[in-house]
Structures are given as C-alpha cells and as structure tokens.
Design a protein around this nucleic acid. Structure first.
Length: 315
DNA sequence: GTCCAGGGTGAAA
DNA sequence: TTTCACCCTGGA
C-alpha cells in the first residue's frame, strides 16, 4: 500500500510509508557511490540509513521512491526532508537536455539516468570528506560509521541507527580518541574542524546562502580542507551546483573528453570545468565520476563485462 | 607473508 | 611547481 503524499495523518493512526514522486532514482549509484557513507543495502534491495534524527529505508518504486520509517515513528513528516535530501530542487531536467549529445555525458545519462546529487547535512558531509583524504570508499564508510556508532545518539534498534555526532561531541572526544578508532592522520584535522563549527567560528548553515567563492574560502581556512574536499562539501551539502570536484580520475576524463591538458593542475581543471558546465557542474561531475568508476571496474575485470560476471551486489 | 593504492593536504624544497 | 610525510585497511 502506498500512501499518497497529500494524505493526512488523521486518515489512519500511523502512516507506515510515503511515496516520493521524484522520478527514477538509482539508489546504489546515488547513496552508495561516494557521496554519502552511511547507507547500507538490505536484503530486499532497499537502503537503510539516517537522515537527521530519523532512521529510514528507501526503495526504488515506479516513478519515485518509497520511504519507510525504521524507527517506529510516523512516516508523514518524512516527505519534505526526503525530497530535499534527494536533491529535488536541482535542475536535473535542464542538465539532461543540455548534455544529451555530449560525448561523455550523453551515454552516461542514457546508462544511469537515476543518478542524483544529494543534499546532505553539512557537518556530517564535512567530516566525511576530511576523512576521504588518501582513503577509499570502504574505508571512509568504516571510519565514519565507527565514529557515528561510538559518539552518536541511538535513534533506532540497530547499531548503525545513530544520529551523526554533534561537532561539540567530536571536539570533546579529541584527537587520540579518533586515532584509536583508526582515523589515522585525519584525526588532527577533524578535531579543529569540529571546534570551529562548535564555537560558531565556521557557520556551515550560513554558507548555503553565501556565494560559491566565499563558501569555498571559508571551508579551506580549515586545516585538512583543500580545494578537493571543499568542492565535495559545497556540492553535496551547501547548495553549490556550480562546484566541480577534480581528482586524478576526473582529470583523466577531462583530458580524454574535453581536451583539457593532460598535465593541467587540479585547480586549473576545476576552474575550466566550472566555466564549461556552469550551474550543472556538480551533476556533470557526478555522472563523469560514475562513468570513470564503471570503466575502471570493467577494465579491472578484464574488459567489457564479458569475461567475468558482476559480483552479487556490485561491490 | 609483502606490496600497493586509495575521490588529499600542508610544508618544504 | 614538485615532492614527501602523514595513518591504516583491504585486496592482489
């Protein structure tokens, strides 16, 4: 049974799920592709995770998503926060139209049209991408997950059902605590970042209203936050669709598809891409990253997906 | 068992 | 502009 969005809570005692008419969403690519790090696939293909102080499961459905509370509470309050989280305000249609014939993005759009750019909590996003330095997705998930489980509030039945720890809590826990959890040298960046946010020296919510440049400059004031990490936080949590994230994989793609010089600096390439993709930079970036990732995976497995079958869950 | 890369950053040369 | 240390985990 799917509850229409406009059904009120008085119609029945407990609303068990809501349907979000947001069009097709590729949940694996979107929730588990390197933007966010606390979503876990269930046996039934749905993803379980936390948004704010709510534990939810999200499943793909015809024309949108079905969201169920996993914390015993009512589903009726989830519609707005979930649409928001899924990036519904972004200009996905404009992006699709503009780049339908692009040699790199056109095939990507046809191949996995349901990839979205999330709109996450800025503090969790900042923490996660400071953790991403010289790391990889499995390890980032491990690090962020362990910190959340040790320091966050339990808001559900399972171990992972925890709200992300407040910056005050991270700051009080201290560097050694984070090192003992396996965060490595990133611990010495995370504690000052938590302090700056906790003391109000860095007001992340204000950066949603600030210009791209002002917001980026504010973020890169933090130790451990360079251009790359800042662009991730700007794109995935601070409403900056003009942010373009460049790592070595993306640089290779920019060279292959758009003739950006092979040995261009990462910041030159990012500026070039921001100019070229404009307000669609974050979307273009995510589709390009996903395409590179699949290509690399295919190459690692011996070419065009022919010699070996994909693993059960693609990871 | 060893080796290596992994969505970087900051400091020094 | 380039090089190097920084931590540590999983896979080859």
């Amino acid at each position: 049974m799917i509850i229409p969005e406009n059904q009120t809570a008085t119609d029945i005692t407990t609303v068990e799920q809501v349907f979000l008419p947001v069009g097709f969403v590729d949940l694996e690519a979107t929730l588990d592709g390197g933007q966010a790090f606390r979503w876990w696939p269930q046996n039934d293909g749905a993803y379980r995770g936390v948004i704010g102080r709510r534990v939810v499961t999200i499943a793909e459905a015809d024309g949108g998503l079905v969201v169920r509370p996993a914390d015993g509470k009512d589903a009726s309050g989830l519609t707005h926060s979930l649409s928001d989280y899924m990036g519904q305000d972004q200009d996905l249609e404009g992006f699709r139209t503009r780049f339908a014939d692009d040699p790199c993005l056109g095939p990507a759009l046809r191949g996995y049209s349901g990839l979205r750019v999330l709109r996450q909590d800025p503090w969790e996003c900042l923490f996660s991408f400071i953790c991403s330095s010289t790391s990889n997705i499995p390890r980032i998930k491990l690090n962020v997950g362990v910190v959340a489980e040790r320091l966050g509030y339990s808001i559900g039945r399972k171990t992972r059902d925890v709200s992300f720890p407040e910056p005050e809590t991270i700051f009080e826990a201290g560097e050694q605590f984070l090192r003992d959890l396996g965060l490595g040298f990133r611990a010495k960046y995370l504690v000052p970042a938590a302090e700056a946010v906790a003391l109000g020296q860095l007001r992340l919510s204000d950066l949603r209203e600030a210009s791209y440049t002002d917001a980026r400059n504010a973020l890169t004031e933090l130790p451990g936050v360079g251009r790359k990490v800042a662009d991730c936080v700007l794109a995935f949590s601070l409403d900056k669709p003009e942010s373009f994230i460049v790592d070595r994989h993306i640089l290779r793609a920019l060279h292959r598809w758009y003739d950006v010089p092979e040995k261009a600096s990462l910041s030159y390439a990012a500026d070039w891409a921001r100019d070229y993709f404009g307000e669609h930079s974050a979307l273009a970036n995510q589709y390009m990253f996903h395409r590179e990732r699949l290509a690399r995976r295919a190459a690692d497995w011996g070419g065009a997906h022919t010699e070996r079958a994909l693993p059960e869950d693609g990871r």
